[in-house]
């Protein structure tokens, strides 16, 4: 028993038992038959995947995709200029700005979702201000709408979009921009031909770590969405903890994993392309 053996054994056994095996079991469960008492039993079947595509589940699934997509795009629209501006500061200011960005994480995200609920309520601050200023005649129904879910998703996920984009701005070589300017490219050209392509890995990385997780955040839909604005996470949670249809719940998760694999593939492609064109390394994730 030497140190080397122990370190390697720990690494492999922990990852095998708590990562590899569980994922394998999840895929396996998605192919089994649901059973009320034993949760999932043989024989293997593809029924679960067929059930995913029945109108009832499909409509919730698509609505959830739509909500996440909108939230992700709004995150991107805020995070991109934000990261750009932050990266232009001196390193001590940058450190402070990034610190302020991640500080709210130290309060549990459920508590922050509750904060949004208070903010958007019928008698909440937004309604009080807007009616007080006379902009709205009477309080608007903000809570339990699509708007509230998207607002909450953007609120919780924005930093995850900022950080990878910031990291690709950080690596952007300013001499490339000078070269562009010297060669007569105007601002818009410099943005479209130099900045945007070179920060694309950051954008895609941000997209990856925001889009799919957004679909899983069931507590946002629970607190802010009402019954009509469910996320995929609500379906999965319900299937596992209430309806106890583990195979169908697993099938939904396997589909999520497949979407993620597909997006990673795209990311790898783009990164490869940028590496060839701009000499950057693969460190955005």
């Amino acid at each position: 028993m030497n140190f080397r053996f122990l370190a390697i054994a720990l690494t492999i056994s922990w990852l095998a038992i708590f990562v590899f095996l569980p994922h394998l079991l999840l895929v396996n469960t998605s192919l089994l038959t649901p059973h009320l008492e034993h949760l999932a039993v043989w024989p293997a079947t593809l029924d679960n995947f067929q059930k995913v595509f029945t109108p009832l589940y499909l409509s919730v699934f698509l609505h959830s995709l739509e909500l996440s997509a909108i939230a992700t795009i709004i995150c991107l629209l805020i995070a991109y200029p934000f990261a750009w501006i932050v990266s232009a500061h001196t390193s001590s200011v940058r450190a402070w700005l990034l610190f302020l960005l991640v500080l709210p994480f130290w309060t549990n995200s459920l508590i922050r979702t509750y904060a949004i609920k208070i903010l958007l309520g019928k008698n909440g601050v937004v309604n009080t201000i807007m009616t007080g200023l006379g902009l709205w005649q009477e309080p608007m129904q903000l809570l339990y709408t699509e708007f509230a879910v998207i607002f909450g998703l953007v609120y919780l996920l924005l930093p995850f979009m900022v950080l990878p984009i910031y990291s690709s701005f950080d690596k952007l070589d300013p001499t490339l921009l000078e070269a562009g300017r010297d060669l007569g490219a105007h601002t818009l050209q410099r943005f479209a031909r130099i900045i945007l392509p070179l920060t694309m890995p950051g954008i895609i990385a941000g997209f990856l770590i925001v889009f799919l997780p957004a679909m899983g955040m069931f507590y946002i839909a629970d607190l802010l969405g009402g019954a009509k604005n469910l996320l995929l996470g609500n379906i999965i949670k319900n299937l596992f903890l209430v309806a106890r249809d583990w195979p169908l719940g697993s099938a939904f998760s396997v589909i999520m994993m497949s979407i993620m694999a597909l997006m990673l593939l795209v990311y790898a492609r783009v990164n490869h392309y940028v590496q060839r064109r701009g000499g950057l390394d693969d460190q955005n994730l």
């Binding site: 990562v19 079991l25 990856l208 997780p213």
Partner: peptide
């Protein structure tokens, strides 16, 4: 494979991880 597993943990949406833990 070990590196790949760590990558999977980092990239998997929480809800998928949660279920894999529950199952194991």
């Amino acid at each position: 494979a070990a590196g790949g597993m760590l990558f999977i943990v980092m990239m998997s949406p929480d809800i998928v991880l949660a279920i894999t833990f529950l199952v194991i």
